[in-house]
Structure formats: C-alpha cells, structure tokens
Design a protein around this nucleic acid. Structure first.
Length: 300
DNA sequence: ACTCTGGCCTGTGAGC
DNA sequence: TGCTCACAGGCCAGAG
C-alpha cells in the first residue's frame, strides 16, 4: 500500500537515473505485471527497447515516464502502479535476479552512466504498461515531475491529488456534498481525490476529528475544509519523513524504508491510547479493510 | 446514475 | 513441528 508520499519518494529517486536516459534492454520475467498493457511481453519489450525517457511524473499513486519523440512532444509513456507491494529499485548493472523481480530495464544515462531499474512486486497487484498520452482538460501540468499537460489515458479518469497546485478544492467540496457515502469511502475514491489510501485516510480523519462512517454530505463545509487541510498536512509530513513503512514492502529506490510509521496516531494502533485523549483506538471492518479511529474524539 | 461487492495475488504470523 | 487460515488492500468490472 504505497500511497502518495511513498510513490513520490520513488518518483524523486528515479529522476536522476531515468530522466533523459535510454532503455538499452527491457526484460519481462512475469507477464502478470503487464495486465494493463494492451500487448504481450514481447510487444512491451520490443516497443521500449532503444527509447529515451523524458521525465518521471506522478499523479496520486500513478507514475509514468513519457517517452521522447525526436523534436515533438511525447505521444506515449510507460505507466506504472505499485499496487500493494510494488517496488521500483535501482541496482548496479548486472545485479542477479531479485526475489519477486517481474521486469528489468537496463538503463543508460548520458552523464550518470548505466543502471538497472527493477520492478519487484510480491503480490502482483501492481502493473506496468505502455499507454497513449492525452491532453489535460484544464491545460495544467498533468502531475508532479513535468510541466507538460499530457496524461496517460489510464490515469486521465482520476482526480488530481491534494498536493497538486491545480487541485480543485471546490470540486472536492462539491463531490463530498453530493454523496451519501461514508466520508472515508469518498477519501479513498480516486475520482474524488487521488493519492489517499487506508493509512492516510485514517490519519486525516483522526486529525480532523471525524468519524470515518459519517455520511459525506452531512459534513458542514467548515468540516470538509478542515479535513482537506488535514489531508494535506499528513501527506506533507509523511513526505518529509520519506514515507511510511510497516513491512519491507514500502521502500525507496534503494530499498530503504521511511520513518513516518513512528508518527501515526490512529492507523494500526488498535487498543493503544489516542494521543489526544487517551481513549483506546478501535478497529472496525470497513469495505473489506480496516478503519482505525478514536471513539471519543471521532463521534459519529 | 449512483453505490457497493468480489476478485485479483502472496507472504506472514497467530493459533491449534 | 507443521498445518490452516485470516489478513494486508488498490483498483476495476460488474452486480444491485
């Protein structure tokens, strides 16, 4: 469950090695990581070999690398989603096959030299694909990492994330006002706001003192504004600490974990005292996953 | 039109 | 010791 901060750590880590680099070779070891690619493994390898990567861009939890097109703007990109357990690692060229390695790119950068970019994914919920780029409806940059207003078709349907300068606060408030769904469900809906997963949803709701199952359209505008502020605050803090890590799955491009797990107030703290009032945090089942909240600070 | 559920996956660890 | 099983949960297709 890498969420926005973890994916941003990966994006920033890839930039020096990948932006402007050439893909000398592409090797697919497990085609299950290509479920969102329209062709087969050979097609993926053949279409990428020899191409040059322009940039590494992120919106929400999606990453993409626009492919350079001589003298023109790029028309396609490698799109990636880490799913629950995906990692994008940088290793010395020729590094032996890693555990759960799915796809390897042998990369050559004009100034930084050769490196291996390895897609590792234990649970194979993640995927890579080649996708066409289309124009953003608002004309703004499509995501963090590039000024170009081109977004992969597979990413176009999701909302911008709350750290995106072009995020539409008013559209977010409108969307919440329009649904009777639980506010947590709305936070996890990537078409409403992207980048938030179970961890940061629980953390933002705790900070805003909102019960996860409050119907979204019953929240006063003031509460929605407060919630959005807390979403941004928790994402910013996690980013500053290099992301959250609960097990070995959430790592930067060098395989190192972040520190934000030490800063969590609600998520994963079942039975431990709420840092605000001391009441034990409770855990309830919620749409096939868990919600953690303080029953005293976060009243329904 | 909107809302919600199930299925895709595999490693880990608790419990017997 | 070795087995089973619940759990982690983002995303999307399809059901309701």
């Amino acid at each position: 469950m890498p969420e926005l901060p973890e994916v941003e750590v990966v994006r920033a880590g890839l930039v020096p090695a990948l932006a402007g680099a050439r893909l000398d070779a592409v090797t697919v070891l497990d085609a299950r990581s290509l479920t969102r690619h329209p062709g087969d493994a050979r097609d993926f390898e053949a279409r990428l070999t020899g191409r040059r990567v322009d940039a590494v861009v992120r919106r929400g939890k999606f990453l993409w690398m626009p492919l350079a097109d001589a003298g023109a703007e790029p028309i396609e990109a490698i799109v990636g989603h880490l799913g629950m357990s995906g990692q994008m690692l940088l290793r010395e060229p020729g590094t032996p096959t890693l555990r759960h390695e799915r796809i390897r790119f042998d990369v050559r950068h004009p100034t930084h030299g050769e490196i291996a970019m390895v897609f590792v994914d234990q649970r194979t919920f993640g995927s890579l694909a080649i996708d066409r780029l289309e124009r953003t409806p608002d004309g703004a940059a499509a995501g963090r990492g590039s000024d170009i207003p081109l977004v992969p078709t597979q990413v176009a349907h999701i909302a911008r994330d709350p750290l995106d300068p072009a995020f539409d606060d008013r559209a977010f408030r409108t969307a919440l006002g329009r649904t009777r769904s639980a506010v947590k469900r709305a936070l996890l809906d990537q078409t409403v706001v992207s980048g938030i997963g179970n961890i940061y949803a629980d953390e933002a709701l705790w900070a805003a003192r909102l019960h996860p199952e409050r119907p979204a359209n019953e929240l006063p505008t003031r509460a929605v504004t407060r919630l959005l502020g807390e979403v941004r605050a928790v994402l910013d803090r996690a980013l500053a600490e290099g992301g959250t890590s609960f097990d070995a799955q959430y790592v930067n491009v060098n395989g190192q974990a972040g520190y934000f797990a030490h800063s969590l107030n609600a998520y994963g703290r079942t039975g431990q005292p709420c840092p605000r009032c001391g009441t034990p945090i409770v855990r309830v089942s919620f749409t096939n996953r868990s919600s953690h909240y303080c029953p005293r600070c976060q009243r329904r």
